[in-house]
Write a protein that binds this DNA or RNA. Structure first.
Lengths: 330, 330
DNA sequence: CCGAATTCTGTTATCGATCGCCGCAAAAGG
DNA sequence: CCTTTTGCGGCGATCGATAACAGAATTCGG
């Protein structure tokens, strides 16, 4: 910076002012400084700036360390959005979603003096870890506890699940079965709730809930059971991978989809259009979630007021494909 | 730090020594300082340290901004490995893999004063961007150009593809077709090469190469064509998603897998065991790639010698499932 | 045409650590 | 018993930026 100042014939402070787009610097010197910067190929040292300002142009993201489609696609979408606002992204993945490891990940980020935090915290155990956070750090929670008072961005799981269930009921099915995600995930709970609501609203009988863990394997395991129950004609699965396992199990038992059994998934993974048959599913807009999160976080960072307690809900859309048909005549 | 020093009755310098595990500090004062640190809950400011040392405990990762299974699972594996060595990870994803955007991502990381860089650079266009990197920054390239002289960690694409092709030939097929990945990806090129080698070694005729783009859609598109060629009995696809699209196309044309056509994929995505039929595939060990990368990078960082030009190759393993069978009698 | 307000720019202190050098005490050597 | 080495710990400078304050130049109202 000193070199630039010398070349431009000004003080280092003036260079700093140009860099930070302060007013009160004449057009003439501004140009001189700009020229000197360009000539020397000077790039400011963000570390030094971070030291004196006490904050950095870095956002910390805490995400579960899984290959799950949702979290991983949000991560990249998130990085993209941050980048467009001039922020870098520090990831701190957590192997398991318990309070301790989330708290650790948060600590690591705080050590790095991040400007704000985004936490993908889809389970209840994340709550306490976040509660002990210093008051003044900007925070956005994604898919977090709907009850907690903090800035929250969520996919409207309930509405998505309701749409899926209603779609099956509208096709003529008397009721709809559900294979859920892990019980401690808010996402899974929301989808169960939407499913229940739709059944109740339609006056349909509610079959027992089957529980999966997002994996195709769990869909397969539950599918083995469903395949043997002749009264099952429609199933809504908590995600597309469970649906895939279910399709596999049904196919092994010779039960045809959608002729005998209709299925709706959730997530719209890019492959689901090529399942056998192509899967009707619900698409949450992960890009929108990421964009909204960055937006809310930057608002907090700029304003200095950490917790506005606003929440943003992203509505998913139903993608009809070939895995839904009217029930077979009995 | 001053507060800690005061409480321990020493100077700030001694506190720093304790923190950095310098020798020349007596056991007695070390304990006093440790106690003071614990009592005050002091955490060193990494930003200040980064400023004076000129480097940070942060590694930059450049990865393509895709939902592709390989890159995204390496990203999380990578973060995990770095974390265990006390490093944080800064991600800089790139939307498209051209020279310009890769160079930009690298610049952003350098601005942050990262200690080293890992670049997932599976295309040739990444080369020039990396060539212009300052000499002294530790760098590990993943799945990069096998010809370039730089520290490189790769999955042995050729061996994996050879194994897949040989597996099909061993089942009795007279030749094997191949749907490749995008031509500009090294991964794709390696798999094509392994396929060619295996065919040549077996004296099998080499069918024309079909080109995909990793997506199920491209597998489907090519599958529509293959389904109409009665002589096709075995196909090796560049990844599992292409195989899924292929399965779909074959199923639509009433061609049965594996009775009429055998298929082998690549990647072993968690879902491939539940495709219809379960897919025989080749599993690259992404965790091993990540671990090796971090290891090599830390070696460079510690030793101060940036470019050791070592390379580490991870051998993939064939996972036999149900999508391979002998060819139908003719 | 002068004093006051307003721009512009420079000087110095500061963020929180590490590094180099120096002094002092205790241990080793003659 | 005195000198030399070694171990321990302190003082001040430093990294590269921004913040606060103050001085110089300019504009403006009366």
């Amino acid at each position: 910076m000193m070199d630039v100042a010398r070349l431009a014939g000004v003080s280092h402070q003036t260079v700093s002012r140009v860099l930070n787009e302060h007013k009160n610097v004449s057009e003439q010197t501004r140009l001189k400084v700009r020229a000197a910067i360009a000539e020397l190929g000077y790039r400011p040292n963000r570390t030094a700036r971070a030291l004196v300002t006490g904050t950095s142009k870095v956002i910390g993201v805490v995400a579960p360390n899984t290959a799950l489609y949702g979290p991983s696609s949000m991560l990249t979408a998130f990085e993209q959005a941050a980048q467009e606002s001039g922020f870098a992204v520090n990831v701190g993945s957590v192997r398991s979603l318990n309070e301790r490891s989330i708290a650790d990940a948060v600590e690591r980020h705080l050590d790095q003096r991040v400007a704000g935090l985004v936490v993908i915290a889809p389970v209840a155990s994340a709550g306490p870890a976040l509660a002990r956070l210093p008051e003044d750090v900007p925070l956005v929670t994604i898919d977090g506890d709907p009850q907690r008072a903090s800035t929250l961005v969520t996919v409207d799981q309930v509405a998505g699940a309701r749409a899926a269930t209603e779609h099956l009921l509208a096709a003529g099915h008397s009721t709809v079965w559900h294979i859920s995600g892990p019980a401690d995930w808010f996402d899974a709970a929301g989808r169960v709730q939407g499913w229940e609501e739709a059944l109740k609203a339609a006056g349909a009988e509610q079959p027992p809930l089957l529980t999966g863990d997002w994996s195709a394997e769990s869909g397969y395991r539950n599918g083995k059971l469903l395949a043997r129950l002749p009264e099952v004609t429609a199933v809504f699965t908590a995600n597309d991978h469970i649906a895939l396992g279910l399709l596999r199990a049904l196919s092994e038992h010779g039960r045809r989809v959608p002729e005998e059994i209709s299925i709706v998934g959730f997530d719209d993974v890019p492959q689901s259009a090529y399942y056998t048959p192509p899967l009707t599913t619900v698409r949450p807009d992960f890009d929108a979630v990421a964009t909204a999160s960055v937006e809310l976080l930057l608002e907090q960072i700029d304003s200095g007021t950490p917790d506005a307690s606003t929440r943003r809900t992203i509505a998913p859309t139903l993608i009809p494909r070939d895995s839904v048909a009217p029930p077979p005549p009995r």
